[in-house]
Amino acid sequence: MLKELKELWAYRELLYVMVQRDMRIRYKNSALGVVWSFLNPLLQVFVMSFVFSTFLHIQVPNYTAYMLSAYLPFMFFQYCVLDSAQSILLQAALIKKIYFPREILPLATVIANFIHLLIGLVIFFGFLLFAYIRDPRVIPFQVTTIYLPVLLVILFMLALGISFIVSALNTFFEDVKYIVQVLLYLLMYMCPIIYFAEQVSNTKLNLDHGFILYKLYNLNPVAALCHGFRKILLAPVDVPVGKEVAGHMPTPWPYIGVAAITSFVILVYGYSLFNRLKWKFVERP
């Protein structure tokens, strides 16, 4: 693996150009351009928070921000996996003609999406400021935001690892792409995005079985990370559970630690799997 990493470093210039190309192509022929990369999550979250607070009567102040804080990292993960699934096949003509480390393709996809995530976070803070001006009770900035880089690094490792696996497998079996689409759809409901982790913790099922449900729930690294992002970016909030109100929980650092280890293992495994399969991309039967 060291040999491959060394080679990757030698090709860093290509990686840079590849990311640049990816960002350029994405919105090349659209009038709104890069605006789409944050208009999309904003619209989704506005609709969801409207449904939840108006139709389902869940009263949490500034619900939109709480959803957005977890939806942005989730959306990054989702787009990375979906885009990289296609990344090798879309460049089939190129990899049949010329050599370069193949891992640059999914890596460039993940980096381009990561840049979009960073833009999204800037918009997010802008949104918080806007919410603060409208309602000064909402504090726009948390001290814990300094932990943001830590979570971003873990999330990046996880997304890259899964992207390596998915892109390598999808090159041989295009079913992988469809399986992944379904799984990602399910994953969204298994992460605290449209609801709160406190609500999971306070379900009867969980309380009756010695918190086993909540523990299992948090072993999913994406769930733990979404929960973490929400905790460090926004003020703690008490959430309604049935007719009562559940107190907020602290930032789930132990679970984030588990997620970090899981993500690292997935990244190492994903990269070695990719390296094992990459020579067969051009000569798949």
């Binding site: 190309r21 192509i25 090349k28 190129l94 049949k96």
Partner: peptide, 10 residues
Amino acid sequence: ELGAGFHPDL
């Protein structure tokens, strides 16, 4: 095969 890596939109 020249131009294998050209992207049409760029």
